[in-house]
Design a protein around this nucleic acid. Sequence first.
DNA 1: GATGAATGAGTGTTCATTCAT
DNA 2: AATGAATGAACACTCATTCAT
Lengths: 192, 192, 192, 192
Amino acid sequence: MNESGVRRRQAEQRRLQFIDTALAVFAAQGFDGTSVKDLAEAAGATQGLLYHYFPSKEALLEAALERHYFLPELRRIAAPDRDRPAAEVLLELARGFARVLDQHRDVVQLMLREAPSNSAVAERLDRARREGVRMVTEYLASRVEAGELRSHDCDASARLLFYAVLAAHLANTPPEPFLPSAVEILLHGISA
Amino acid sequence: MNESGVRRRQAEQRRLQFIDTALAVFAAQGFDGTSVKDLAEAAGATQGLLYHYFPSKEALLEAALERHYFLPELRRIAAPDRDRPAAEVLLELARGFARVLDQHRDVVQLMLREAPSNSAVAERLDRARREGVRMVTEYLASRVEAGELRSHDCDASARLLFYAVLAAHLANTPPEPFLPSAVEILLHGISA
Amino acid sequence: MNESGVRRRQAEQRRLQFIDTALAVFAAQGFDGTSVKDLAEAAGATQGLLYHYFPSKEALLEAALERHYFLPELRRIAAPDRDRPAAEVLLELARGFARVLDQHRDVVQLMLREAPSNSAVAERLDRARREGVRMVTEYLASRVEAGELRSHDCDASARLLFYAVLAAHLANTPPEPFLPSAVEILLHGISA
Amino acid sequence: MNESGVRRRQAEQRRLQFIDTALAVFAAQGFDGTSVKDLAEAAGATQGLLYHYFPSKEALLEAALERHYFLPELRRIAAPDRDRPAAEVLLELARGFARVLDQHRDVVQLMLREAPSNSAVAERLDRARREGVRMVTEYLASRVEAGELRSHDCDASARLLFYAVLAAHLANTPPEPFLPSAVEILLHGISA
DNA sequence: GATGAATGAGTGTTCATTCAT
DNA sequence: AATGAATGAACACTCATTCAT
C-alpha cells in the first residue's frame, strides 16, 4: 500500500523536469507557440506522460509560474533597513532588482508575453510591480523624514528607479555602467 | 479607366481593413494565438479573400507592423531644438513619448509580445529604442555644452527618461502626475 | 457574390453522402465505436472536409437521425380507414410496420443502440413507439364501436401487434409466415 | 493454509466487484463508450489492478456477460408442467419472463447494445431467444394435443407472447395491466 | 495484491493554405 | 474581387495496455 520513497521521489523529479523545461520553452516560443509535443520532447518524455502529471497544457503553465514566482525574493530585496542612508542603499536596491530579474529571466519574459491574453498572469505581474514600487516608496519616505532626502513625490522617484531597472532588463541594457550612473543622478535629484 | 480606379481604391481599403483589424486581434491574442479564421472574421471577410490580399498569415503580420510603425513619429518628437532649455523641453519629450506609445498601443504591445520569437520584430523594436535614446542623449549633451546641465552620463539620464515613460506605459501608470514629478526629479539631478 | 448553383448542389450532395454513409457506419459500429476517420473514409473524403460540413461528430449523428427519421411514414401506415374491417386491415398494418422497419433498418438499429446513452435519441424513439401504439389503439377502438370486435383492452391488443412486429424485426424473424399467423391469432382473440 | 484461503476469497470478491460494477457501467455507456479508467474508478481501484484480474477490457466484458447470463433462469421458467392448463400457465410464463428481464436489466441492455458489433454476444442473445420461444412452442403444442387449445401455428403464438414481453420490457411499459390483458387476448385467440 | 509511472497509438478537432468557380 | 470547398498536417488530449516496484 505504501509506495516506496524512491519512486515517489523520482516521480517528483519528473514533475519538476517537466515544469522547468516547460518554463524555458514557453518563454522562448510563447504559450500558443508551444505544442505539447514540444514540451514533451524538451522534457525527454512522451506526451502521454505529461498528461499523467498535468491535466492540461494550461496547468503546466500555471505550475511553472507558481514554481518560479519571484515575488518573495523581490520583497526581501525591496525592504532595506530604513535607517541606512539612501546614498548607500539605492544602488544596492537597483542591483538587487536587476539580479532578481536576471535570475528569473524566463518567468519574467513569459509573464510579460502572456499577460495580455491571460488575466491571471496579468494580475500576478501587477501585484509584483505594485508591491515593489510601494516598498521602495515607503523606504524613500522614511529617508525624507530622516532628513536625508528633500521633500518630494516619493512615488515618482521609486517608480523612476524601479522602471529604469525593469526597462533596462527588457532592453538587455547591461547594468554597468547604467545603474550606478542612473542612481547617482536620481540621488542628486532628491537629496536634501 | 475610372472604373478600375474605383476598384483599386476599394481593394486598397479592403487591404487596410484586413491590416487594421489584424493588428488589434494580433495584439490581443498574440500571433500564434490568432487563427486565420479569427482574422477573416474580424475583417468581415472570408479566409479565401484574405489569401487574395496576403500570401500568408505571417505576411499580414508584417504588413500590420509596417503600416503602424511609429519610428518616424518617435524621431520627430525626440529631436527638439537644441537651443531650447531642458527645463522646458524634457517634460514635452516625456509627454510626447507617452503620447506616441499611447496612440500606437496595439503595435507596441504586439511588438513586445512577438519580439522574443521573431527576430525581425526584435530588431525593429531595438532600433526604435536605440534611436530614441540616442537622440535624447545628444540633446542632453548639447545642453551640457550650453552650460544648462552639469557634466554627467547623458546616456544614463536619457535612458532614465525614456525607460520611465516606456515602463509607465507598460504598467498602465497614468502619465499624470507621474511624468511631471519624474521630470522634475531628473532635472534637479542633472542641472548645473 | 452569387455562388453558381452547380457548386451548391455538389456541396449539398457531399453533405448527404456524409450523412448517409455515417448512418450505415454508426449503425454497424455504434457512435462511440466509430472514429471520425472511419466516417471520412466511408464518405471518401478527408476528416477536415467533414468538419467543413458538420461542427462535430455528434452533429453528424444528429443530422443522420434527422434525415432518416421514419415517424412520418409510420404515421401514414398506422392510420387506416376506420371503416374498413380489422379482418382486412390488421395484416396490412403489421406488414406495413415491418416494411418501414426494414426500409429503415440502420436508423432503427442506431436509435436502439444509442438510446441508453443519448436522451435525445431515447425521446425520439419513445415518441415513435407511443404514437404508433396510440394510432392502432384508436383504430381498434373504432372497430369495437362498429361491432366488429368484442369489447376489450385495445391498448393491449395494439401493443401485442406493434411489439410483435418490432421484436420480430429485432430478432430477424422473417415476416412470413409469422405475421399472418400472429394476426390470425390476434383477430381470433378480439373478434366479437 | 487458512491465510491463503482468506486471500483467495478476498481476491475473488475483488474480481466480482470489478465484474458487477463493469456490468452497470457498460450497460449505461456501452462498451466503446466506457474507458478502462471509468471501470477502475467505478470499482474503486486502479487501472493496474484491473489488469491484474483481467487480461483486457474485452475480457472483463466477457466475464460480466458470463456471470450474469440469464439463460438458465429463463429455461427454468419457460418449462412449465405440460399437464397444467394454458389458461393457468400463460400469465405465469409472461410474468416470469418479465421478472427475469427486469432482474437482469443491465445484461439485457448491454447484450442488445453490443450485439450488432459483437457476434459472440449476438449468438448468445439469439440462443436465448430461440430457446425461450422453442420451449413455449412445445408447451403450447402439448396443450393442443391435450385438447385445451385449438390447432394453430404454435410458433406464432409463442412468439407473440415472448416478443410482447420483450418489447414491453424495452419500452419500459409496466407489466400491469398490459401482461394480463395481452395473455387474455392471446388465450382467447388460441383456445379450443 | 496493488500501485502508478510509462508508452505509443489513437481520439475528435483545428490549422494554414490552395484552388476551382 | 470574392467565395467556400477541399486538403493534409498539426493540434491538445485520451486510450488500452505494460511493467518495475
